[in-house]
């Protein structure tokens, strides 16, 4: 990740989470953190416990972030943010934590509508991180939308959300069309769809991992003596080794939900 990418993401994060900007210099950013951000990216739980117990005026930290070493004004302690810096990783975690759930209405002034009300179509949009695991791991992010009125599923739905304006309150003269699917039902549909998607991926890696696992197990079976000749300890040891091999190699898929959003869209053909 380039320093300017780290910078722009940092800036957006700080602003989105209400930090007070003191200086936005090309080489550095100086800011007084909001309480929320201070708690998330600076590890000082005891301070916060103390402040809250004693009812003191909280003093969130002021930090000066740089994105390349040695760019701070002289005499100031810099907080160097690179993509691998623990503080930056904490920001990412914090961002993921707080930005998981949204409910938004498309903010589009209907033209020439003097009376009556314009409908919204309800969509549930999920972002999944699909992880393929054996002794190694790779991830894939997938964005799925489901029309809560028809059950129609659309992949890469995130694209559809771009370039629109949003508001978190239902605007005047608008109403939402009733959903046919409940949220749990819709989630069930998406999971079912996802399972099919996973099964259609290139799964050579899983076959290879399975072969490897079988080889490892065979090697263990060949190494330890026949069952009746083994002491209890040796028997236990062999069982442990077999378990470890399975633990290490068995191919599997884990799906984590990164975000979930309820989006109300203006129908294209009202």
């Amino acid at each position: 990740m380039e320093p300017n990418q780290v910078r722009s993401l940092t800036l957006r994060y700080l602003e989105a989470y209400d930090c007070h900007m003191i200086e936005k210099h090309p080489d550095y950013i100086e800011t007084r953190l909001s309480i929320e951000v201070d708690k998330d990216i600076i590890q000082r739980p005891f301070y916060w416990m103390y402040v809250e117990k004693m009812g003191l005026e909280p003093q969130p930290a002021t930090l000066l972030f740089t994105f390349e070493p040695g760019k701070a004004p002289s005499g100031v302690r810099e907080d160097l943010l690179t993509s691998g810096a623990p503080r930056f990783q904490q920001m990412l975690r914090s961002a993921r934590n707080h930005g998981r759930f949204v409910r938004l209405y498309e903010d589009k002034r209907p033209r020439l509508l003097k009376e009556g009300s314009l409908p919204y179509e309800p969509w549930l949009v999920l972002h999944y991180q699909v992880s393929f695991l054996c002794d190694r791991k790779k991830d894939h992010l997938i964005s799925l939308g489901i029309d809560l009125r028809t059950g129609a599923i659309s992949e890469g739905f995130d694209q559809q959300l771009q370039g629109r304006d949003w508001t978190h309150k239902l605007p005047d003269r608008r109403h939402t069309l009733p959903s046919i699917l409940s949220i749990p039902e819709a989630v069930g549909e998406l999971e079912y769809w996802l399972q099919g998607w996973i099964e259609n991926q290139d799964l050579t890696w899983a076959d290879q991992a399975m072969d490897q696992l079988n080889q490892e197990l065979a090697q263990l079976h060949a190494f330890y003596p026949e069952e009746w000749r083994m002491s209890d300890e040796l028997h236990e040891e062999k069982k442990q080794r077999l378990r470890e091999s399975i633990w290490q190699y068995h191919p599997r898929v884990e799906v984590e939900t990164v975000s979930a959003g309820l989006f109300y869209l203006t129908p294209t053909h009202p």
Binding site: A95, V102, W166, S259
Partner: peptide, 16 residues
Amino acid sequence: WSTWERYRLALEAAEL
């Protein structure tokens, strides 16, 4: 509920 901008940031963090 979160805001649109915070929602985008969460997604970008996940992508990274």
